[in-house]
């Protein structure tokens, strides 16, 4: 049991780290939001599952925390992204990809 829990913890921590690496490596703020949100959400959920396997008595509160993260994290990211777009921050573009509605330069 402890081994399975530990595997969840390592995988969760690894995804969280990938998210942080994405935060550093990605070229613009929108891509950083993407890397940050996705990887950290699944990473956190894996960590929570790992802890739940270590401390089964805590399952109910861990479930609430997991659902909270699952709902608020993408919502917060979308809110930031929308605010940026409205504030006029242009998405980075490698080549001339068609951008309906938004000129890329």
């Amino acid at each position: 049991m402890r081994l399975i829990a530990d595997l969840f913890l390592v995988v969760g921590a690894a995804f969280t780290l990938f998210g942080a690496i994405g935060l550093i490596r990605m070229p613009d703020v929108y891509n950083r939001i993407q890397a940050g949100t996705k990887a950290v959400t699944l990473g956190s959920l894996c960590l929570l599952i790992g802890i739940a396997l270590l401390y089964p008595a805590w399952w109910s509160k861990l479930l609430v925390i997991g659902v909270l993260i699952l709902i608020t994290n993408p919502l917060g990211s979308s809110t930031i992204a929308r605010a940026l777009l409205k504030a006029g921050v242009k998405p980075w573009s490698k080549a001339s990809v068609s951008q309906p509605g938004e000129a890329d330069r």
Binding site: F18, P27, Q34, K38, W92, V97
Partner: peptide, 26 residues
């Protein structure tokens, strides 16, 4: 989809060439 998204993101982030072609679509 969530697991796929993370594997996909991990692959992109870790590959040296950083394969990206971002655009805002409707």
């Amino acid at each position: 989809a969530l697991v796929q998204a993370n594997l996909d993101m991990a692959r992109r982030v870790l590959s040296p060439s950083l394969p990206l072609q971002p655009a805002v679509v409707e």
